[in-house]
Design a protein around this nucleic acid. Structure first.
Lengths: 275, 275
DNA sequence: TGACATGTCAAACAAATGTTTTAATTATTT
DNA sequence: AAATAATTAAAACATTTGTTTGACATGTCA
């Protein structure tokens, strides 16, 4: 007799439905039901491990050990390691945005500058919140350089709406349509400053050991990013004659020369002479 | 008889020395010597694989297959997989900075604004150069979220000097000491906009499929980053009364308030006013 | 109570993978 | 050419790791 209910995705889902039904009967709050205890502990342990060392480096054995469960537990409750991962990512994302919505609590009729500040603030809070919330940020960092299938889900339900929201704000501040190239670039500039502390934490800490990167750093960092970005957007020089004539916008000769792989022109001002 | 020369690090080094000696006698350019052909092919293949899928996911079997070498070749020529990785990282870093030095060819007496532009430009060129150069960027992205021992080397010889250089530029533009908090924050802002296209390439491409992210994108992107950053630094409002009094700088209550989903007053200190 | 579904556990499986071994081959030196 | 060192090759080794198996326990409900 094969009791294992994880044979196929359908069976798995069915099983969960049944469990959910039972829970509704036995416990008001499913999060405190004694029934899925193992499942919840796995989710918690997996959250720790995945955030800490990533999907690939995490072993189901370590996860089960921390959850106080048998090695087979992951496959029984989630089907396989990958599904567990997807569930953890979904779960941590939900908690992160539940606690820190993109505009925090700012009034709907507040000026866009204020909303932008809140946007930045919430972004950093999701990263530096002390506790399990930071898992979302850590997992996302890894997803950026090594995306899994789990990312696609988040993209449409979370990331794209946030991107649209930001584009709206920036276009209000800048004046113009959210679809302008200029707006997109400024959104990149704003977001990049936020995610920087995600991705480069290692480097930052090594270069500047005294740089604080925890919840207490959110206020000053968010303050700077908002000030910097608003100053930039308020005083951005005319969107240079961009489209019409393709301006090199820089060292003129340098860029093209390098793109064409002509090392000859690379050191124009007779700078470094080696070999 | 044990011929294997990889027994210890010392033996390995010696062996390489001897090889180098022979090469000097048999070929003028060691890069074209037929002697280390396998070694060079391993380095090349490993560069591809490590950049593409990272250290952990890469298998020595795949690397050897691409190099047309036996599985044992990695261990023979480099000792182990990790040493090979370190060598690849060192090598790609050297090539990247050889081709695109931090200030490109800008004159030593050029104004700091121009140097900053070159700094940004070279940063992006190292990322978007078409060809093997981009490996450095890809490997560094991974090092950020999952650093290996190989990073420590680069840090002191490459990254820190670059950071110091940037701090010098920014402090010139901003006026003030390179050690100012304000300078550091602005450096973060500049660098973050550059590395963004490293780290979030996946996300950017999915959100904006038409956004070009190759060599042809360097000029417009670098142009924007420089314009944005210079505008910000030239018009940065007074470094708010930060340090002295530990100001919540923002929400204070907001985070908590929002947990309860109360659209609270986000802007506590009447610090910023729009003009 | 007995039948049945659900969950847990120890053991084993199967595949992947870094590394080593041993022998054969090639190049260099004497 | 002989001897010696360097390199390559095939096979095997030793571990790790995701997954599966089959027995056993537990709780639910007729």
């Amino acid at each position: 007799m094969n009791l294992k209910p994880v044979e196929s995705r359908e069976l798995r889902v069915e099983s969960q439905k049944q469990r959910a039904k039972r829970q509704a009967q036995t416990a008001l709050d499913p999060r405190h039901s004694t029934l899925d205890q193992t499942r919840r502990q796995l989710l918690e342990a997996a959250g720790e491990v995945f955030a800490e060392i990533g999907f690939r480096n995490a072993t189901v054995r370590e996860i089960c050990r921390r959850a106080g469960a048998n090695v087979a537990a992951v496959n029984y409750h989630f089907g396989d390691k990958e599904s567990l991962y997807a569930e953890v990512l979904r779960d941590s994302q939900q908690k992160a945005f539940e606690k820190y919505p993109p505009l925090l609590g700012v009034a709907a009729d507040a000026p866009p500058e204020e909303k932008l500040r809140a946007f930045i603030q919430s972004f950093l809070l999701r990263i530096f919140d002390s506790g399990s919330i930071t898992r979302f940020g850590k997992m996302m960092s890894r997803e950026m350089v090594e995306p899994t299938g789990a990312l696609d889900l988040l993209l449409e339900v979370r990331i794209r709406p946030m991107a649209d929201q930001l584009r709206g704000l920036v276009s209000e501040i800048l004046g113009g349509s959210p679809d302008d190239e200029e707006v997109r670039l400024c959104c990149f500039s704003v977001v990049s400053q936020c995610v920087f502390f995600h991705h480069c934490r290692t480097m930052i800490t090594r270069l500047f050991p005294d740089q604080r990167l925890d919840a207490s750093a959110v206020a000053p960092l968010a303050g700077h990013i908002a000030r910097f970005s608003l100053a930039a957007m308020k005083h951005l020089p005319d969107p240079e004659p961009s489209r019409s004539k393709p301006v090199p916008a820089l060292p003129r000769g340098v860029a093209e020369a390098n793109v064409r792989r002509k090392p000859a022109d690379l050191t124009p001002r007779g700078k470094r002479r080696r070999r």
